[in-house]
Nucleic acid binder design. Structure first.
Lengths: 215, 215
DNA sequence: CCAATAACAAACCAACTGGTCTGTCTGTGG
DNA sequence: CCACAGACAGACCAGTTGGTTTGTTATTGG
């Protein structure tokens, strides 16, 4: 039975994480200042260095517990809900446009930002980010593979390559949106992503066997 | 008649620019240390602050005189050499794979890196980078438009949107290549880019009027 | 109820960082 | 040939930064 104004270690830790995320999203990991994170939370150095051994460890925690978690929830896990992976990818892309605020688009994808900044100079970040992108790619690839076995996706395409391109296109679109400073840029990418996805679809005419669900 | 070991202001300035670019490419602008740039060149503080009023001004100079210049030479200017813009975009993508070294791929696109890092926190960078990406997009868009008038590109597509997607896909592919740490990733994106580009091509069957060059 | 420990606060510090200031040398126009 | 400005060197500095140390308070197991 903890009182809200009194000590609550888990909540304190999470508050630090959120503040650190906000700072990293804006200034990058190197640009993030520990003092700034603290002033956001009202806490002091003692609190931060009690929960995290170093700034680097704090960065890793933000990456794994906030950034990767959110992307998994938004891009990876929901893929399994769709029978048609091509529709699934498109709908997820569309959904992000509704969920994210304009300010969030202006700051861009935090994972990509961290990747661009830290991959070349910190092995810990590089490994974690690389591992996660491989996971993401594999999830898309698996969905496409399943789409092939269901007679939705062309059998001659390479799911791995297509998944790579899809993830690249998503990150690229988010990047362009951030750079050009207009959420409409993201929306305009939607149609082109659809065009690419439809080019992966097995058209009815070229089908020899009959196998589809309802749609 | 300057001796190579003696004073040569233009050369000195360029040496600083190149060193600063290398540092920025690896550590980012904020991560770049003035002292490190200097030790790369063998020069001292006096030299740098004689040629550049501040670290920020040095960053702007690197962006405009090295980064944007190179991208213009590699991605924008050569577009005009192709009668078929779809082939042109593809060939340029292909050409980069041959020109850039593995180490350069590992460091990724310096413009995107700078954009991700500095856009949210520095108006000077934001404006310059935004302006340049608009230039790039417009160049691709113009090429596609010309392709339409030549009966190569489907008349119903929006050149602006497609150009946006092309640039996004290129940057995305470079980003994925950097993150996954394998130049092969870039090569594997080639085929998917081609698939997208071909989806923009006006197929012969659907043509009503006869208008093509040689090919 | 009482140590023992977890959860913080507050002051402090050494290293670093961009930038300045003064001085020196080199090339050059008159 | 010589004054003068451009091109740099080298020492110096104030502010910042991540991290530490010590002290204080709340929480909890026995």
């Amino acid at each position: 039975m903890q009182m809200s104004t009194e000590r609550n270690p888990e909540n304190t830790r999470f508050k630090i994480l959120k503040a650190a995320f906000a700072e990293m999203h804006q200034h990058g990991f190197q640009g993030m200042r520990v003092d700034q994170v603290l002033s956001r939370t009202g806490l002091k150095k003692g609190a931060l260095y009690h929960h995290f051994p170093s700034k680097q460890a704090l960065g890793y925690a933000v990456l794994e517990e906030l950034i990767e978690k959110r992307i998994r929830e938004l891009w990876i896990d929901p893929l399994a809900d769709f029978d048609d992976p091509l529709e699934g990818i498109y709908v997820l892309y569309e959904r992000i446009g509704d969920v994210w605020s304009d300010e969030f688009f202006a700051l861009g994808c935090p994972l990509n930002k961290l990747a661009q900044e830290m991959s070349p100079i910190d092995g810990g970040f590089r490994e974690r980010i690389g591992r996660f992108f491989r996971l993401w790619q594999k999830a898309v690839s698996q969905a496409l593979l399943q789409g092939q076995s269901r007679g939705i996706v062309k059998p001659e395409i390479q799911p791995d390559d297509c998944a790579l391109f899809v993830v690249a296109a998503i990150e690229g679109a988010l990047g362009m949106t951030k750079i050009l400073g207009d959420k409409a840029v993201y929306e305009r990418g939607k149609g082109e992503l659809k065009r690419y996805l439809e080019s992966l679809r097995l058209d009815i005419e070229s089908m020899t066997n009959d196998s589809w669900e309802e749609e």
